[in-house]
Design a protein around this nucleic acid. Sequence first.
DNA 1: CAAGATACTTAGGCATGCTAAGTATGTCAA
DNA 2: TTGACATACTTAGCATGCCTAAGTATCTTG
Lengths: 163, 163
Amino acid sequence: MSTELRELLGDLVQANGRLVRVAARHLAGTRAAAESPAVWRTLGVLASRGPMRVSELAAHSRVAAPTMTKLVATLLERGHVRRTSDPSDARASTISITDDGRAAYDEWRGAVAAALAPYFTDLAPADLDALRRTVRLLQDRIELGESETRTEHQDADLEVSTK
Amino acid sequence: MSTELRELLGDLVQANGRLVRVAARHLAGTRAAAESPAVWRTLGVLASRGPMRVSELAAHSRVAAPTMTKLVATLLERGHVRRTSDPSDARASTISITDDGRAAYDEWRGAVAAALAPYFTDLAPADLDALRRTVRLLQDRIELGESETRTEHQDADLEVSTK
DNA sequence: CAAGATACTTAGGCATGCTAAGTATGTCAA
DNA sequence: TTGACATACTTAGCATGCCTAAGTATCTTG
């Protein structure tokens, strides 16, 4: 493991922290700020990976299960997600994003982009390339693999048409 | 403003959120987790920019002044920073990082790097380049300029379609 | 020297996260 | 069949992190 990579990762996390704070402060007062980061992270998972159970959602979103329970409750209140009981397991339920949730998520992304864009004007093509490549890299590496969703013993989760 | 840049910024913030969560969960239980992100962000500012007042620290760290007051109180308790009264202004005081604080900060960075490193093995040289370039880019763009310690930033047009 | 500006702190409130400890429900083996 | 254990999720309770509003000192100035 190169020393440089370690340095970079430390710097990356530090820079990320600031970036998030910058966005948060710019968003203050806008509708996008009404909900909070955890909410958007959760909606993002649902938007990109489709409906899933609370436990899976927690794993993908990298929070503890009880935390996700609360987030889901909030999202339900706002009408951003829908909960469907699972016919095959009365303990569980499937959470899916609603059109409203998707719209709110898109709006948030737009607001964040608008807030940060002024800081990234005049990007050299090479910088833009690097940014693009890094974003994809992060997405690839941090994404939760299919196998590690949980104790994976779900037999072929074939589209049960719950929606 | 290219549409692609906006997309990228949205994705970047989203990816960052997950990255931070991944690191947080890996760090759970370690000494590095004893303190929290805001604390490290603050120490990072002090480590890289030197001693400064509470208000400047708040501006650099992108939080409201009262928030920084609390953070400083925490850091003082832990012995990570030192507070010196300003002879020229009895209202203000200067905060500086202690050796202890610097050591703790370095340790945290090491812990974060160690936690995330496994996700970034086998990086293609081009990916490493992109990562390096992006980290520097973020640092440059988000860094608070000497002039703008105070709150005055171009608010751009925004227009977030808040309807 | 009184009025207003500043630097910071105190108060109060909400959101995120966690662990521990439930409550149902499901599974399996005797 | 049934009792023990595993699971899926929820409830409770606690510790930050952050914010706005409202102080409290302490400058600065007309």
